[in-house]
Nucleic acid binder design. Structure first.
Length: 476
RNA sequence: GUCCCGUUCGUCUAGAGGCCCAGGACAGUGCCCUCUCACGGCACCAACAGGGUUUCGAAUCCCCUACGGGACGCCA
C-alpha cells in the first residue's frame, strides 16, 4: 500500500510556521516512502475562509518547494458526501437526531462552567423516539459514541495514549443546517482520499479520539496517526506577532531562503545524531517520523539566521544575483542596467560570504548600482582625510596601469603601500570609502575589479577631488 | 476545573542502565587569521526540574510533586 499523507490547513489566514513544519513533515514522510503528498483546503467555515488565504497557502508551499502529487481538494465541495455518510450512520443506528437547541446547550455549558463542573452532552436524545421531538426544531445528528471501556491510540510520535470513553460525549457530526462538523468531515475526507498517515499538530490529539469513533462506526480502516509538537515563541508561549516573523511569506520577505527555513524547521523537534545541515535530498533519505520529539520547541531566530547565512554561502551565484536584482529594482535611489548586473554577479562570491539574509545581501550590493558622487556614510567620510585624498590620487595612477584583474590589483596595491611606507589598511580603507561610500565591503581588490577600471577611477577621482582645498589645516 | 502530553546548557538537541564528573549546534565571551566586515580556526562559559524508589551502578526504569503546554463548540 502506498503511503499517502496530506496537509490540511484551513484558509483563515497566512500559512503559519507551525503549519509549514507540519506540511514539511508530511511531505518528507511521503517522499521517504515513495508515496504521495496531498493538499486539502479545509474551507467549510465560510465565515472565516478566504480565497486570498487559500492562494497564500499555495504560494507558500510553492515557495518552499513542497510539491503536491494531486490537485488540492476543497473540503467545501464535499459537504454533500459528508452529509451522505452522516445519513448512513443514522440508518445504521450509529447516529441519532438530537433536538436540543444550540441556545439550550450553550446555557447548560455556561452554567456548568459557573459551577466549575465539567460539562458533557448527556446523550438525552440517544435512545429517545423522534416522535417525542419538540415541534419546530430541526435536529442535528450526533454520533453514538462508545460509553464504556477506553479508546487507545498508537501514535507514531506520542506513543500509546489512552482515553476512557466516558470522557467522550456524543459529538455532532451534522449540524441542524445540514453542514458537517470538522471531526466528521476530516474522517470522511481522509478515508475517501485514501490517506494512510495523518501527521498533524498535537493540538489535534484529543480530536483523534472522537475521529476514531467515526472510523469504527463506519467500519473503515484507520490511518496511522502522528501528532507532532507545536512551535512556541522564545518565551515558551504561543508564537505571536511580538516574537517576530511567523508566516512563511514573511520569512521570504525578510530575505530567508526556503531551503534554510526548511532545514531549520526540520531540526526543530527532529534530529539525526549531531547532523545540523540537511538538504532536501538527505532529509528525504533520513526522515522518519519516530525520530520526532514529543515536547514543544521554541523558535530561535538567531539559529535560523545562522543557517540562512550558511545556505546563502552555498547558493548559486546566478540565482543570488537574480534575487538581489529583483530587490534592488524597487529602490528609487539606484539605477540598474546590464553593467550593474554584471558587477553584482562578479562580486557575488565575495558578497554572499558576508550576508545572512537576501536583504543584507542586496544592501551590500547597492553601491554597485550607484554613480559618483556616492552618498557617504559618516565613518566613510571621516576616512577620507586630506592626506588620504592625496594618497588616492597617487594610487589611482598605479591602478590605471593594471589590467584590473584581482591579482594585478592586489599586487599593485601592495607595491604602492610598500613604496609609500603605508600599511595596506591605510591604502585600502580610504579606497573602500571612495568606492563604496562605506567602511565595509568585500576585499578591496575584488571590489575594484568588479566595479571595473572606468567606474573605479571615476569614483576615486570624485572622492579625492571633493576636498581639494585641504592644505593640512583641516579641523577636527 | 476535567482529560491528555511534556520537562538535558539561554535556545535546538545527542543520549534507549555502565562508553556521560553528559556530546554537538546556535547565541555569548576571548584569542588567531586579516585591508574593513564577514568566513574560517582555537578556547572559554553553560544543563540531566525537585524528591523518593529499583539496581553493584540511573540523565536513562518506576512513583510522587512542581512547572510548562494542549484539548474540552451546532469553530477548524
Amino acid at each position: 500500500m502506498t503511503v499517502r499523507t496530506r496537509f490540511a490547513p484551513s484558509p483563515t489566514g497566512p500559512l503559519h510556521i507551525g503549519g509549514v513544519r507540519t506540511a514539511l513533515f508530511n511531505y518528507l514522510y511521503s517522499r521517504h516512502h515513495g508515496g504521495d503528498f496531498l493538499l486539502r483546503i479545509e474551507d467549510t467555515d465560510r465565515e472565516r475562509s478566504t480565497d486570498v488565504a487559500t492562494q497564500g497557502i499555495i504560494d507558500s508551499l510553492d515557495w518552499l518547494d513542497l510539491a503536491r502529487d494531486e490537485p488540492p481538494v476543497f473540503q467545501s465541495q464535499r459537504i454533500g458526501r459528508h452529509a451522505e455518510v452522516a445519513r448512513e450512520l443514522l440508518a445504521a443506528g450509529r447516529a441519532y437526531y438530537c433536538y436540543c437547541t444550540p441556545e439550550e446547550l450553550a446555557a447548560e455549558r455556561e452554567q456548568a462552567r459557573a459551577e466549575k463542573r465539567v460539562w458533557r452532552y448527556d446523550g438525552r436524545w440517544r435512545d429517545r423516539d423522534p416522535s417525542e421531538a419538540p415541534p419546530g426544531v430541526t435536529p442535528a445528528i450526533r454520533l453514538k459514541s462508545e460509553r464504556e471501556g477506553e479508546t487507545t491510540l498508537e501514535d507514531l510520535v506520542q506513543g500509546t495514549v489512552r482515553v476512557a470513553n466516558i470522557e467522550l460525549d456524543d459529538m455532532i457530526i451534522l449540524r441542524s443546517d445540514g453542514s458537517p462538523m470538522y471531526n466528521h468531515s476530516v474522517v470522511v475526507d481522509d478515508h475517501d482520499m485514501a490517506i494512510t498517515h495523518v501527521i498533524r499538530g498535537d493540538d489535534h490529539l484529543t480530536n483523534t479520539f472522537r475521529q476514531i469513533q467515526v472510523y469504527k462506526a463506519m467500519g473503515w480502516p484507520m490511518p496511522r496517526f502522528a501528532h507532532i509538537p507545536l512551535i512556541h515563541g522564545a518565551d515558551g508561549a504561543k508564537l505571536s506577532k511580538r516574537h517576530g516573523a511567523q508566516f512563511a511569506l514573511e520569512f521570504r520577505e525578510q530575505g530567508f531562503l526556503p531551503e534554510a527555513l526548511c532545514n531549520y524547521l526540520m531540526r526543530l523537534g527532529w534530529s539525526h545524531g549531531d547532523l545540523e545541515i540537511v538538504g532536501r535530498e538527505e532529509a528525504i533519505r533520513l526522515f522518519d517520523i519516530i525520530d520526532v520529539n514529543r515536547g514543544a520547541s521554541r523558535m530561535d531566530y538567531a539559529k535560523l539566521l545562522n543557517l540562512n547565512g550558511i545556505y546563502i554561502r552555498q547558493a548559486d551565484d546566478d540565482r543570488l544575483t537574480r534575487d538581489v536584482l529583483h530587490r534592488l529594482a524597487h529602490r528609487p535611489d539606484l539605477a540598474l542596467g546590464s553593467h550593474v548586473a554584471a558587477r553584482i554577479r562578479a562580486l557575488m562570491p565575495a558578497l554572499k560570504e558576508r550576508a545572512k539574509t537576501i536583504v543584507e545581501l542586496s544592501d551590500s550590493a547597492a553601491f554597485l548600482a550607484r554613480t559618483a558622487p556616492l552618498p557617504m556614510e559618516p565613518k566613510a567620510a571621516a576616512a577620507l582625510t586630506a592626506e588620504a585624498k592625496l594618497m588616492l590620487r597617487d594610487v589611482a595612477t598605479d591602478l590605471a596601469l593594471t589590467d584590473f584583474s584581482v591579482p594585478s590589483i592586489d599586487a599593485a596595491l601592495r607595491a604602492f603601500a610598500e613604496r609609500s611606507g603605508l600599511k595596506l589598511g591605510q591604502v585600502a580603507q580610504p579606497l573602500r570609502a571612495a568606492l563604496t561610500g562605506s567602511t565595509v565591503s568585500p576585499g578591496i581588490d575584488a571590489t575594484l575589479s568588479a566595479l571595473g577600471r572606468e567606474e573605479s577611477l571615476a569614483r576615486i577621482v570624485a572622492a579625492a577631488g571633493s576636498g581639494q582645498s585641504a592644505t593640512g589645516a583641516t579641523s577636527d
